[in-house]
Structures are given as structure tokens and as C-alpha cells.
Write a protein that binds this DNA or RNA. Structure first.
Lengths: 168, 168
DNA sequence: TTATATTTTCAATATATTTTGAAAATTCAA
DNA sequence: TTGAATTTTCAAAATATATTGAAAATATAA
């Protein structure tokens, strides 16, 4: 397969894949382009490479920088900003875990804690089912949260080595 | 907090939360409603409970059944179909993992395998970066895939007990 | 059968999200 | 300063997704 076709297919599939994860197609495509680009790119490079408008590239690049997946690079003597993606996939994954924990899991856990005690007869089956469901989700989230914390702190070799040996 | 308010808030937050995970709001709200309902509900119950049209409820209920998160129940002597959600959150989680692995992770891994060898000079930096990126993602996915397999096979107590003790 | 209840489908509509592109703001060299 | 290069913003347009509701299909009781 030709490099240009393979790159094209990777970028487009990565974009489609991302939509299943609540990430917009364009943001994922820009990320994919930067992942396969050995050198940093400018906004214009990205616009040309993916046929997108300036505004669109600008907004999605900012989002990627906010997520900590892309760095803005100022090259000496260059007027334009350059952008470069973190290439180490383990680091990419842990960064995404960190952010999603902070943005989604933690707020959800706060809400669950608030919903845990409702007024009313503990023997009423509606009350009972509600509190059981909430506490079930709360406990599960707590475990998941802890596990993710540990994964984020660990390094890749530890994960690949110890954890998977343990699992076998 | 009153039960009715707490239920309302849970349903609405669960719906909002789900949109970050590529799941539509309505499907998640129906799921939430069924999770807190001790008895099975009919389509009409769900329509009334969430103020949704018949068609909408019908489509999203089918989707939930396809995902294996909700069962269609035929009560003897009842004309209407009833629906009930799996209440065990561990089972819900493993079911979601199974389905997403099958629907998303596995197809992506197939694609990555195809993209792994591209024509061209292995010393060309574009070729090099592309193959390194693809193989990095491929290896990471393989590890994740294995870990998820093991989690799905394991039961909850194992997860909560051994795994987390190991992590500490 | 036939009539009625129930479920499913799907074109039309409504809503939400993404994208554009030009104007405004900012940066920076001269 | 000034002016050209670059980045950012954001209202309007385009696109994508979700929702409705009524008609068609299906199931069930009489």
C-alpha cells in the first residue's frame, strides 16, 4: 500500500472511530495527521492537508492543546505557530484518561453522592431500587476511578510487563 | 431530597453524561429510567415517563436490547411487551465492554494490521513516522484488548478484591 | 375469519452540531 | 508608530442527528 493512501485511510478511519467516543471527527483527524507527521505543522499545513477552513482548524487545534495532546511550538525565526502531537501512545492514553476522569467521571461521582440519600420509606420498592442502583453505580465508579488513577501513575513498562503477566 | 426529584436528576444527568461517550441522550435516559424502576415498564410507561414519542421510544428500546442491556419480557395474560434493565452494574459494564470491543476495537485493529506495511524507503522520515505510529497504536490496542478480555471473563469479586489489592 | 390492540417503520420535521469565511484582534518586524 | 502577517472570534450557512406521528405491519382475542 502506498504511504499517501495509507495515511489517508488512517486519518479518515481515526476520525470515524472517534465519533463513537464523543469526539468530533475533525479534531480526531487533525490529531491523526499530526500523529503521522514527523515534523510540526502550521495551521495552513493542516488546512491544506485536510481541506478545512481556517476557523475550524483553529478551534479544533485549541481543543487538542487543551486536552494536552498537542503542543504549540514557536520556532525561532518563524512567524507562524507550529503544532506537534505527543507521539507516545501510552502518554496519549494516560492523558486522555486523566482529562476524562476530571471532566466526566469526577462530576458524575459528586452527583451520585448527592443522590444517595433520598427521603421516604426505605422499604418502598421504588426507594429501594433507586438507592440500590445509585449505590451500585457509585461503588463501581469508585473502583474504576482508583484503577485509572493507578494506571495513570504507572509507566508503560509496568503496565505491559507486570500487569499482563499477572493477568495471564 | 425527594425521590421524584432525585430520579429526575439521575435520568437527566445520565443522559447528558452519555453524550460524552457517543451514546444518544434518549437511549441513556430510557436506560436510566429502567435502572431505577423495580418493575418492568411498557413502551407507554416510558413514553409517559420521559415525554417521548412512540417511534423514538421504540427505536431506542430496540437499540438497548441489541446492546444486551435491556430485556423484552412477555408477561402471561398481558398484551403489551414489558422491558426491564439488567440491574447489576458489573454486568452492565462487562456487556458494554464486550459490545464496544466487537463493534469498535476489533475493526480498528484489523485496519491497523492492514496499514502496518507501506511501500517505500524505510529510512524516509514520513514512512518511518507512519509505521511507528501505527505499530504503537497497534501494540497498545493489543494490550488493552487482552486486558478487557480478562476483565470480561472475571467476576466482580475478583475485580474488586484481587485486582485492586494487587494495584495498591 | 374479523376487529382491535400493539409494534414497527420511515418520510417529514425539528434540533443540534459542525463548518465556513470574513471581520476583528493580535503579534511583530521595520 | 505603521503595516503586513498571523491568529482568533463568531454569526450565518451547511450538515448531521434525533424526533415525531401517522400509516403499515404484525399479533392476538373473540
Amino acid at each position: 500500500m502506498k504511504l499517501s493512501d495509507a495515511r489517508q485511510q488512517f486519518i479518515s478511519s481515526w476520525g470515524a472511530f472517534a465519533t463513537h467516543w464523543g469526539i468530533n471527527r475533525t479534531m480526531a483527524q487533525i490529531h491523526a495527521l499530526l500523529l503521522v507527521s514527523p515534523d510540526p505543522l502550521t495551521q495552513d499545513d493542516i488546512m491544506a492537508g485536510l481541506s478545512l477552513s481556517r476557523g475550524n482548524v483553529n478551534m479544533n487545534i485549541r481543543e487538542l492543546v487543551d486536552w494536552g495532546l498537542v503542543d504549540r511550538i514557536l520556532l525561532p525565526g518563524e512567524r507562524k505557530d507550529f503544532f506537534s502531537a505527543e507521539k507516545d501512545i501510552w502518554k496519549v492514553a494516560t492523558q486522555i484518561i486523566k482529562e476524562r476522569k476530571k471532566r466526566e467521571l469526577e462530576p458524575m461521582m459528586k452527583l451520585l453522592a448527592q443522590l444517595e440519600d433520598v427521603e421516604g420509606d426505605k422499604k418502598d420498592k421504588d426507594v429501594k431500587q433507586f438507592t440500590e442502583t445509585i449505590s451500585g453505580i457509585k461503588n463501581f465508579s469508585k473502583q474504576a476511578d482508583r484503577m485509572l488513577d493507578i494506571m495513570v501513575k504507572a509507566d508503560e513498562n509496568w503496565f505491559v510487563g507486570s500487569l499482563l503477566k499477572f493477568f495471564k
